[in-house]
């Protein structure tokens, strides 16, 4: 594998990622995902902490109808557990395991924390409308040429480019 911190050639990584995605579609009939596992976790948490609320609110009821059984017994939850393990192994091999808050050098730690929190919240929120995130809607959608997936992909990257100028102080 790579020596030190060097990353894999992007085209090779893309090719391997594409094969993984294809394998997933061939074996299971579905592509990859990430935000679905976050959703399952939120539903499971709410059902545990406030069962009566989960029984009444429409979102949880609809979720339970579409996904009978334990919300954590979900394909994407297992897939994400695997992804954590896979990324950890990769970090171990390439010597990148380290607790650190990464940020551009002249940006305050507080700014980066708020940025990550707000960005995450927006992404989690938007992924509900998009019915998937960059992996579940955009990447997997592209593989099966889904109209909705490709629209979401265009919207994600288009919007990020459109807003990039206004948030350049966060990164440059």
């Amino acid at each position: 594998m790579n020596k030190g911190n060097k990353y894999m050639n992007p085209y090779l990584a893309g090719f391997l990622l594409g094969l993984t995605l294809l394998t997933s579609i061939y074996i299971t009939g579905r592509g990859l995902g990430a935000s679905g596992a976050v959703k399952s976790t939120v539903v499971a948490s709410v059902e545990t902490v406030a069962p009566s609320h989960a029984g009444n609110a429409k979102f949880y009821k609809e979720y339970a109808e579409e996904h009978p059984g334990n919300p954590m017994k979900n394909w994407l939850v297992f897939e994400v557990i695997g992804a954590i393990a896979g990324a950890f192994i990769s970090g171990l091999i390439s010597n990148r395991l380290k607790f650190t808050l990464e940020k551009p050098s002249d940006i305050k730690t507080k700014t980066r924390i708020w940025g990550a929190l707000i960005g995450g919240a927006l992404f989690g929120f938007g992924a509900q409308f998009g019915r998937g995130c960059t992996s579940g809607a955009a990447l997997s959608g592209m593989a099966v040429l889904s109209t909705g997936g490709l629209i979401t992909m265009a919207a994600i990257f288009g919007s990020a480019y459109a807003f990039a100028y206004f948030f350049r102080k966060l990164w440059l």
Partner: peptide, 13 residues
């Protein structure tokens, strides 16, 4: 959803 995610992407990284 895509627009909101794009915004989240550029703010959250």
């Amino acid at each position: 959803g895509g627009i909101i995610m794009g915004l989240g992407f550029i703010i959250g990284g």
